[in-house]
Nucleic acid binder design. Structure first.
Lengths: 241, 241
DNA sequence: ACAAAAACAAGAGCGGTGTTCTCGTTGTTG
DNA sequence: CAACAACGAGAACACCGCTCTTGTTTTTGT
């Protein structure tokens, strides 16, 4: 399949990687808006025009970094999912959320790149939607496993009934993803997904300054509440109750 | 106090406003990263260096826009708060949240400016923290009024007890803001605040593409659930229960 | 094995940017 | 009315993304 044919192809892969690496370094030092193709090239001992053999434009380079970031974050989330296989559903949920937050705190600029305002034009290229969904899928997997274990309760619709359109979206989503999950739980799951990133973004972007000091505790507590809200329980629940 | 003394001062105010207005126009057309001082000056028939009599740098101009945006958003939220004075607490909560989302959908680029990744250096100038808190304060006001009306229930701590540090933050916050609000409700309130913006950001930044179609219904439903989670109820609740 | 083709790096150059400096001009104020 | 501060214009500096041309080097087809 991916047998490396010659020196040229090998070099191309290495140079491409080196460019992305240096770009990430500059991202860390300066932030997305300050990233400069010329500076990357300079640091690599190239001339700026040579870079265009590897990336068609600055936005293309940014897109590559975005995809890598999504994948890196997604991998961490999936690792947390795997490693917590033996724990109870609530703890798995917390583990995945913690992994996401941990990655965000460790790579703040890359986080800003993917969950901040869209820096390039405006359209997220199609290549990004796959990697972008990995965290969401990990969260869904937790709920799915909880459901299989009988530890997922459906939301009480007597207090806030699920609107028709939302139910339709949930249906479609369950069908498209082919997951064994009650549609009634999906709305809460999607909401929790967005809310998780709201929490992390506020922490990272400074909105919690002078508001929340005990960041770790606050996050864990809120995320546990989120799990409860989604319907995930520590242990099986009798369907009659 | 602010009596306009002469033609010069009058002109300064007008030019400053014109610059911000044109900058906002460009923001709407291009997005934060594409905003150019030179283009603003050009459009205003000035030369770029003249702009520096009004704003010390491009980042300073952006900061001014950020403050204006926070104020505009905050005002909409406060108006929703005022106009819903006669309704029940849950509906007030929803009204404020809807106002925030409505403003965001009407001013997507300004929203990205304030709740996307921090574009200037990294530090939000101190001038922004006041205007930035207006939405949060509006949400707190809803909870406070609900509490006064006996329509606020405290979270059930048997399922997820509030950590010590979080409780301390809540205490401090209630004291600093001088609000008549049980500290036990504050953690949920802050979380709901962040989660609200998570929802809106995901919708605006394209994360709900191919996931949520019924955006209005989804938002209303989720936000109602958020109110319930915070402890806000439609009508007074007996403290014994 | 060798010629044709493709990939590559370099350099110059275009039009754009933020920012600084200088220099007349024009309101403001003692 | 003179001294002063605010102002607008212009030139200049050091960047930027990007394109085009020109040689060189590697790959490929015969």
């Amino acid at each position: 399949m991916s047998v490396i044919r010659g020196a040229r192809e090998r070099a191309r892969i290495e140079v491409t990687a080196a460019i992305k690496e240096e770009a990430r370094r500059q991202l860390l030092a300066e932030g997305p808006s300050r990233l400069s193709l010329r500076a990357v090239a300079r640091e690599l001992g190239m001339v700026s025009s040579a870079l265009y053999r590897y990336f068609a434009s600055r936005d293309d380079l940014l897109t590559a970094l975005i995809i890598d970031a999504y994948d890196s974050l997604g991998e961490d989330a999936e690792q947390a999912l795997d490693r917590s296989r033996s724990e109870d559903p609530v703890q798995r949920w917390i583990a995945v959320c913690r992994a996401v937050r941990g990655w965000a705190l460790a790579h703040p600029h890359e986080y800003a790149l993917i969950y901040g305002s869209p820096v390039p034009g405006y359209s997220a290229p199609l290549d990004t939607i796959g990697p972008a969904s990995r965290v969401g899928l990990a969260l869904i997997a937790v709920a799915e496993d909880a459901h299989a274990a009988g530890a997922l309760v459906l939301p009480d619709e007597t207090v806030t009934p699920i609107p028709e359109g939302v139910r339709a979206d949930a249906w479609r989503l369950v069908r498209d993803l082919d997951r064994n999950l009650p549609a009634g739980a999906v709305a809460g799951l999607v909401a929790a997904w967005a809310q998780l990133f709201g929490l992390i973004s506020f922490e990272l972007f400074g909105q919690f300054e002078r508001v929340v000091d005990a960041r770790d505790e606050f996050f864990d507590h809120t995320v546990a509440a989120l799990a409860h809200q989604v319907g995930i329980r520590r242990s099986p629940v009798l369907p009659a109750e």
